[in-house]
């Protein structure tokens, strides 16, 4: 298996899918000549030309709407949002249109639309570039929401997204674009709604996704040094949520910590924790702990920003709380 960066895994998958299917087109701000803010679309304009790699005006509402129309007509648009924060400008097209066209057409019309770009905190990008919006999009029926944490997942989930028939909210992470990892070749695809056990352990289950997976794995290493064996579940997909894998793990460990990068109220961790209670209440030996970010817009100053997102210490503390240890 070749080793690729997360960025390269995304880019090569776009190339494979564009070579395979002429219906796949890319839209976004500065994705052509400029090759994308995070260079995911490097040289794709040269390869496929301006009719398939479309540099749009700065107009999220407009170009997401255009992409919905293209998808209804049988194209497979892959929209790059410069950051998911800017997709809020297009929320009406995503929520009121893309997510509901199938429903409103009595199941007759497909909307094979993929929207992808960085989600969550970067480094000093302040509150309007740093939000983690998975809970928002995960709320709406009609949208798939996935959040790859590794280069292999970036490829496998993107392929599934592009070949699907429904809108997909594809949440990348700015801090992960340079991450390297082994990526299977060929038609490798990962189904939505299937979590993985990223690390096996018997004492506690830590549930995470996207960048927080890596924080959780580091925390698990530290816990192991203290004799605590944590099992780490990598969700990969927020909607559908693979609660079966999570509950199966809790049945072995009897304790659970759920990690998300940002705001606690109505967040993904709340949904996951509630699902654990519904599926595995009798297995629990302690209340489910949530590790979340600060309940404030993301500050710009680096010292404040570091305080606003969870770190390994926070996860270690939460694990010990479920073990009634200090």
């Amino acid at each position: 298996m070749p080793e690729l960066t997360y960025r390269e895994a995304l880019r090569t998958t776009l190339i494979e899918e564009m070579d395979r299917d002429r219906a796949v087109v890319l839209l976004g701000e500065d994705i052509g000549l400029y090759q994308g803010t995070f260079r995911v679309t490097a040289d794709l304009l040269d390869r496929y030309g301006p009719t398939r790699v479309i540099d749009t005006p700065i107009s999220e509402l407009g170009f997401v709407g255009a992409a919905v129309g293209m998808a209804m007509l049988g194209l497979r648009p892959v929209v790059e949002v410069m950051t998911w924060n800017f997709a809020l400008l297009a929320l009406d097209q995503i929520v009121n249109n893309a997510a509901k066209v199938r429903y409103f057409s009595g199941g007759q019309v497909d909307v094979p639309l993929v929207m992808r770009g960085p989600n969550g905190a970067g480094v000093q990008l302040s509150a309007q570039h740093s939000q983690s919006l998975e809970a928002l999009f995960g709320h709406f029926p009609g949208l798939y929401v996935v959040a790859p944490a590794t280069p292999a997942e970036a490829r496998g989930l993107l392929r599934t997204a592009i070949r699907g028939k429904d809108p997909v909210i594809f949440l990348e992470n700015a801090a992960l674009y340079g991450l390297k990892g082994e990526v299977p070749n060929g038609a490798f695809a990962l189904p939505f709604g299937q979590a993985e056990v990223a690390r096996a352990g018997r004492d506690v289950t830590i549930v995470a996704y996207s960048r927080m997976l890596h924080v959780a794995l580091t925390a698990a290493d530290r816990l192991a040094a203290e004799g605590i064996q944590a099992e780490v579940i990598n969700l990969r997909s927020l909607r559908p949520l693979d609660i079966g894998t999570v509950a199966g793990s809790v049945a072995r460990t009897h304790r659970a910590v759920v990690v998300q990068e940002q705001w606690r109220p109505y967040g993904a961790a709340a949904e996951i924790a509630a699902s654990i209670y519904e599926q595995a209440f009798d297995e629990l030996d302690a209340p489910v702990e949530r590790v979340t970010g600060a309940d404030a817009p993301m500050p710009y100053a680096r010292n404040l920003e570091l305080l606003a997102v969870p770190h390994e210490d926070d996860i270690v503390r939460a694990v010990k709380k479920t073990l009634y240890a200090s």
């Binding site: 924060n85 809020l88 000093q124 990008l125 509150a127 309007q128 570039h129 710009y300 404040l304």
Partner: peptide
């Protein structure tokens, strides 16, 4: 402008009647 909360360049100063704007252009 923001007490270190907003990115540089997003100038605001109610005292001199300048209202700050957001990063998505046009708003």
């Amino acid at each position: 402008s923001s007490g270190g909360r907003q990115m540089p360049g997003h100038y605001g100063h109610p005292g001199v009647k300048i209202l700050s704007t957001s990063s998505p252009v046009g708003t």
